[in-house]
Design a protein around this nucleic acid. Sequence first.
DNA 1: GGAAATTTGCAAGACGTTTTGCATGCGTCG
DNA 2: CGACGCATGCAAAACGTCTTGCAAATTTCC
Lengths: 335, 335
Amino acid sequence: MSKEHRVGIADVAAAAAVSVTTVSHVLSGRRPVSERTKAKVLRVIEELGYRPDPSARGLRTGRSHAVALVVSDVTNPFYPLMAAGLQEVLQPEGFLISVCVAQGTTQDLDSVIGHLLNRRVDGVVLASLNAQDRHFNDITAAGTALVRLSGELDPRFGDIVRADDTGGMADVVAHLLERGYRRIGLVNGELDSAPGRLRLAGYHRALREFGLDVDEDLIVTGSFTRTGGASGSHALLNLEPRPEALVCGNDLMAVGAMDAIRERGLTVPGDVAVTGYDDIEAASLVTPRLTTVHNPAFEIGRACARLLLDRLSGTPSEGVREVVLPQKLIVREST
Amino acid sequence: MSKEHRVGIADVAAAAAVSVTTVSHVLSGRRPVSERTKAKVLRVIEELGYRPDPSARGLRTGRSHAVALVVSDVTNPFYPLMAAGLQEVLQPEGFLISVCVAQGTTQDLDSVIGHLLNRRVDGVVLASLNAQDRHFNDITAAGTALVRLSGELDPRFGDIVRADDTGGMADVVAHLLERGYRRIGLVNGELDSAPGRLRLAGYHRALREFGLDVDEDLIVTGSFTRTGGASGSHALLNLEPRPEALVCGNDLMAVGAMDAIRERGLTVPGDVAVTGYDDIEAASLVTPRLTTVHNPAFEIGRACARLLLDRLSGTPSEGVREVVLPQKLIVREST
DNA sequence: GGAAATTTGCAAGACGTTTTGCATGCGTCG
DNA sequence: CGACGCATGCAAAACGTCTTGCAAATTTCC
């Protein structure tokens, strides 16, 4: 109890009666160590409570063993789940995971990325919607690994992980068709976003697979918000004959659709069925509970983590990869 | 374009025609530097894109410049907001913020804390509900700064930041009383949790301030869930005369209360008013939109950050502190 | 113009780990 | 018995930054 000396690798070596070299090799496994000494060293490490200093290690190896997840919207429940997926894979490997919000002017994307590069993170998962080529470039130019969500695959700009929006939307529409609905309206969100385009494609695909023609009048485009959903729905509900079901671009829009339907004295799903997309928490709290598509946020996080890990631990890049994860239809009460 | 040499402080010194010492002091400000050279050095830093290596710095200073936020529930939208608050204060100071989930068995609290101590984070904000004294102890014993959410103030275990649950609940009840409601039921959650106890106290306080007696029959205790809210509400709605308003322990319970009311063919707020607590996203998506109390998650995050910063940057501790933040009543359509 | 105050340089040690080439000791196999 | 393979030790050089006491150079002030 003399000095508050931080226990270092040398102390371990001394206590285990081996050399520093050996202790280091027990930890890294870069040189064979006999089972007996390995056990002894590990026991001493335990006893002394030795923790290798990440700074010293990082200084020597050039890796910070830290990665970041950059998101653009704090309130979107998708991101925390994704972060948990990242954590599950990366924490056991000793990585520190930083979640950064880039929204508004206070912490814009540029300053967040600048901060992360200053901190020398080893990799970045860019889940921010408002990311530009410039940002991808800044990151890769700094020699930092990059994984993106959605976007076009570009050999310069790292791997991509995304959910199969098209397939998910096709499943929803197919579900309605199987239940006998035929006149199915689509209340979609912005078409200049990847989800907007891909989900529209899924709508088309399902109808095609059932041998049905697409009636363009049944498709409206608005914004991915509650009010966007309401106004789009009103437009469709004015049609004659009235659609039997409204497929919405996301859950928020679906809530708006239910507002519109209720406003006209109609019921869900009695008069009109409604579906959402994303499976946010509110989807199961609303009455009736919403049939929707679950976005595998957790699995997406894990996939990102594994790509990052590959990049960081291994051989130099072998081109960029794209991982597409399936989505899952959740049937509740609104259809 | 010869070698991919990482630019270090020595390169900056050379390019600016000053010594390493001076560059370092420009950055740290621990020694006066003339405006002229300071400007020159900063310009060169800019031109060369010099970024001080955090590992080297950390090794030398003994600080990782990283802090962690530990949460127990990924799906709780409170936490991301809090994280954003932390980020606002800490990122400009160069801190890396790691958000860790400790839930389930995969990543239990012990392993998460162990991980963070291994990583030598400078401070931890422990927002995990299932934290024990043992955990506080592990953290402080490692010399790591600690800030907790709720709990009893203990000189050994760091500062505390919390919201004024009692005051918030008193505001809700006062709001109802002002609108003329008199027979007000309380559908509360678990009493062995801090929110449960504090919110109950707020209910009492408001009635007392209006000079009214508390009718114990109007208070039921269940769990902080939708079904908990529903069953508690049913119990109260069976009373004769029926309560005019149901004050709920949180928003989820309020949704359950609305289920129960609707199930009996009654309307909100026509027959019975309902209030929630926490102001989760769903509170404004539900019909009618819920009157509730907004938990200042963002401000809580900032407060935690400032406490941490004080601890880390300054003079050794001056005892522990407790910060209590006010909550805000949000009046919507359910009252 | 001279004294005082301010600014800058020098040089080297720490911080704790990883890495490496070479040497040594030991057991085993043929 | 000689050779070989394996486990380990040694010593030292990085990695990039901060710190520091003292001396030299420069500026500021009367």
